[in-house]
């Protein structure tokens, strides 16, 4: 059959995740918004925005509940336990700014270190965190895994996985963070707890795709839906 959309791999659908083939690489979208590459033992998460509440307090005096780092790391720990990857890619904007990375409290640093133990950990640079951070792992502008290139902001390249836009998609009146992809580009939803979103019909997002786009909604279950 000829398809111009990345399509599902029915034999591998677990309960709530959604597996599909993207540029010849097997990918699994987790309901949490993480992406698992089982053939490469890679788990990728994008836009964690750790330290966002600290940055807001520093800049504006408004003190949001300081629990978003705990919430985000808890989620990440669950996904790591479920997929047991060798490699973890944080696809940029992992920290809300570089000062937020420096100010991360000791408990959270130790937790992050525990998660990193025994894994290769790659920090892809994002617009919020352009420099290296004083934490385990390697800092890179982009990285290639099998057929795919991972970087923070989408370019014109083919077979590319990126983040940055925090895409959301609306079906039957409900808007949820979503993966968006066509045959050459996969844009990941934001993983961090305090992150807003950009609607899938926004021109900034639409212009990145050619042809038909599929959204994979996150939530209780990763649900694929074509965008019409």
């Amino acid at each position: 059959m000829s398809l111009d959309l990345p399509y599902g791999l029915p034999q591998e659908q677990s309960m709530n995740a959604y597996s599909f083939l993207f540029c010849q690489t097997r990918c699994t979208a987790l309901p949490s918004g993480a992406l698992h590459l089982p053939d490469h033992d890679v788990l990728c998460v994008s836009d964690l925005h750790l330290g966002k509440s600290e940055r807001i307090a520093r800049r504006s005096g408004v003190m949001l509940p300081p629990y978003e780092v705990v919430e985000t790391l808890q989620k990440l720990e669950t996904d790591i336990a479920a997929t047991n990857p060798d490699h973890i890619i944080c696809l940029g904007d992992s920290f809300d700014d570089l000062d937020a990375a420096i100010s991360l409290n000791e408990d959270m640093r130790l937790w992050l270190a525990r998660l990193q133990a025994g894994k290769t950990w790659v920090w892809i640079e994002g617009n919020h965190d352009p420099g290296p951070v004083d934490m385990g792992g390697t800092h890179k502008a982009d990285i290639t895994v099998g057929t795919l290139t991972f970087r923070h902001i989408a370019t014109n390249a083919t077979a590319e996985v990126s983040g940055h836009y925090h895409p959301k998609h609306r079906v039957t009146g409900r808007s949820r963070p979503a993966f968006l992809c066509d045959t050459q580009r996969l844009i990941m939803p934001a993983y961090g707890a305090y992150t807003g979103g950009l609607a899938s019909h926004a021109p900034e997002l639409r212009k990145l795709f050619n042809g038909r786009i599929m959204a994979i909604l996150t939530g209780h279950k990763a649900i694929p839906v074509p965008i019409t």
Partner: peptide
């Protein structure tokens, strides 16, 4: 007011499946 629960998930999945079917990938 819609109830955001299993009933809605059921309908949402049905709707997504219908759209997938229309897109020619329904059998997967």
């Amino acid at each position: 007011i819609a109830v955001a629960g299993a009933g809605q998930d059921r309908i949402l999945e049905e709707e997504a499946a219908r759209l997938m079917h229309e897109a020619g990938v329904g059998s997967l």
